[in-house]
Amino acid sequence: MIQAHGLHKRFGANEVLRGVSLEMRRGEVIAMIGPSGSGKSTFLRCLNHLETIDAGRIVIEGEVLATTEPGGPCRYAPDAEVRRLCRRMGMVFQHFNLFPHMTVLQNIIEAPMTVKGMKRDEIVPRAEILLEKVGLSAKRDAYPGRLSGGQKQRVAIARALAMEPDIMLFDEPTSALDPELTGEVLRTMRELAEEHMTMLVVTHEMGFAREVASRVIFMDHGSIVEERPAADFFANPQHPRSRAFLDNML
C-alpha cells in the first residue's frame, strides 16, 4: 500500500531522516517507536506531504507521489495528483487539530462535503454511524471546546474515517492526553485494527504496540534500527539500542 524508499529529509543542518525505507501491506498495523527526535513523526509527515522529502521515493498504492532520479533532484507529482493520493491516507494528530468553530458533526462532514462534494443527506447518516462507533453520539452538536482530550481525539479519528481512507496514520495520538484518557483512544484504535484497517502508528504506548501492532519499527537518529514482528521485538530485541530503549520504557 505504501512503499517508501530511501527517504532523506533535513531541516537546516539537522539531518532528520537518513534513508528510511518501509513497505506496508494492506491490513498491517505498524507501530513506530523510538526516542524523541528520532524522526518517526517526520517520516509519517513526509508520507502525506505535510513535509517534503529531499531525496527518496514514495509510492502510494502503486502510484508515485515523489521520486528522485539518480543524482537529480526530488520530484513530486503535480499538485492535484498529490492531493488525490494523500486523500487515501487519513491522519490523526497529537494535538487533534479539530476545527473549533464547527460542531462535532460539522467537523466530520466538512471534508466529505467540501472535497468530495457529497450531499448533506448522504453524509450525515454515515457521520452518525462513525460517531456511534467512537462512542460519541451524544456529543454530535457540541463544539470541540466542550470536549475532553480523549473525546477530541476520538472525534478526530471519526473525522479522518469519514473520508474513507485506505490507510490511517497516527502521529502520537495519545501523547497530549492525561493517562486516564489514553485508554479510550487506544480502545478505538484497537477496534479499528480489528476491522483490518491499515495503520501506521507513531507512539510511545508500548502496551498498545505490543498487543495491537503486527510489526514494530524502532527508529533512532533518523534511521530504522530494528524492524520485526511485534511479539518477537518485545520478547527479544536484537539491537543494543532498542534493548536500551525498551529497558527505559518498561
Partner: peptide
C-alpha cells in the same frame, strides 16, 4: 494555528477551501 492548516490539508482541502471554510 498551523495545526488548522495541517488538519485541513490531510482531509484534502485545497488552499482556497482551507481559507474559506
Amino acid at each position: 494555528d498551523r495545526g488548522q492548516y495541517e488538519g485541513a490539508k490531510v482531509l484534502g482541502l485545497s488552499y482556497p477551501q482551507t481559507m474559506r471554510r
